[in-house]
Simulated assay, not measured.
Amino acid sequence: MTLDDLVDDVQATNRELKDADFALDRESRTELAMLVAALDPEESDELVRRAIHALFDSYVQSGKLDFNLRSAYDATYDEYLAGMSYDEMAGGRQEFPQDDDEGRRYQY
């Protein structure tokens, strides 16, 4: 296969993705088309699933998921999996000051 074949495959997949069941901007469609050409999955949906798994794993490993969960829900992913907060696991409940500017910083 040649560069011309690659260009043709990416462009063809890009056109097909315009009719996908999910909305993609032009850049995302082109990137997905390139991944389809390179990885040759049975369906492009497989790559979307892989991308979701990769993004999720990246957020878990970097602590970004816990940071966002703590900010929005006052919980972490581990607490979600355990079904209880760290304080409940330790047998107590620590209350943070609500009016202190520094009171709700993310705790590692």
Score class of each variant (00 low, 15 high):
residue 102 E to N: 03
residue 53 H to M: 15
residue 91 G to Q: 12
residue 45 D to S: 06
residue 32 L to Q: 03
residue 92 G to A: 05
residue 79 E to W: 09
residue 41 P to E: 04
residue 79 E to T: 04
residue 11 Q to N: 14
residue 17 L to T: 03
residue 83 G to F: 08
residue 63 G to P: 09
residue 70 R to V: 09
residue 35 L to D: 14
residue 79 E to G: 08
residue 16 E to K: 13
residue 70 R to P: 00
residue 96 F to Q: 10
residue 64 K to E: 15
residue 20 A to P: 04
residue 1 M to C: 06
residue 43 E to Q: 06
residue 86 Y to W: 14
residue 93 R to Q: 09
residue 21 D to I: 04
residue 26 R to C: 05
residue 99 D to K: 04
residue 26 R to K: 13
residue 104 R to G: 00
residue 78 D to H: 07
residue 7 V to F: 04
residue 105 R to S: 06
residue 67 F to K: 14
residue 67 F to E: 09
residue 93 R to N: 12
residue 67 F to D: 02
residue 94 Q to W: 02
residue 62 S to T: 15
residue 5 D to F: 03
residue 77 Y to Q: 07
residue 35 L to V: 07
residue 56 F to C: 02
residue 25 D to W: 10
residue 5 D to A: 14
residue 13 T to Q: 08
residue 27 E to S: 11
residue 12 A to F: 06
residue 82 A to W: 00
residue 96 F to K: 11
residue 68 N to V: 11
residue 18 K to N: 09
residue 100 D to G: 00
residue 62 S to L: 03
residue 14 N to D: 13
residue 80 Y to F: 15
residue 7 V to G: 00
residue 42 E to Q: 14
residue 105 R to H: 05
residue 83 G to C: 10
residue 105 R to G: 08
residue 26 R to I: 07
residue 64 K to C: 05
residue 74 D to Y: 06
residue 66 D to I: 05
residue 43 E to W: 03
residue 66 D to F: 06
residue 75 A to Q: 12
residue 75 A to R: 12
residue 2 T to L: 06
residue 49 R to K: 12
residue 82 A to P: 02
residue 80 Y to I: 05
residue 85 S to G: 03
residue 89 M to G: 14
residue 33 A to V: 12
residue 62 S to N: 11
residue 1 M to W: 03
residue 31 E to D: 08
residue 107 Q to H: 12
residue 67 F to Q: 13
residue 48 V to R: 09
residue 81 L to Q: 08
residue 103 G to A: 15
residue 27 E to L: 12
residue 103 G to I: 01
residue 100 D to N: 10
residue 8 D to R: 12
residue 80 Y to T: 09
residue 31 E to V: 07
residue 108 Y to E: 14
residue 24 L to M: 15
residue 45 D to M: 04
residue 49 R to S: 08
residue 93 R to Y: 08
residue 100 D to E: 13
residue 27 E to D: 09
residue 20 A to L: 08
residue 73 Y to G: 04
residue 2 T to Q: 10
residue 56 F to P: 02
residue 76 T to P: 00
residue 31 E to F: 07
residue 87 D to R: 06
residue 98 Q to I: 01
residue 8 D to M: 04
residue 59 Y to K: 10
residue 72 A to C: 00
residue 42 E to R: 09
residue 84 M to S: 08
residue 81 L to N: 05
residue 105 R to V: 02
residue 19 D to N: 15
residue 13 T to R: 03
residue 13 T to P: 01
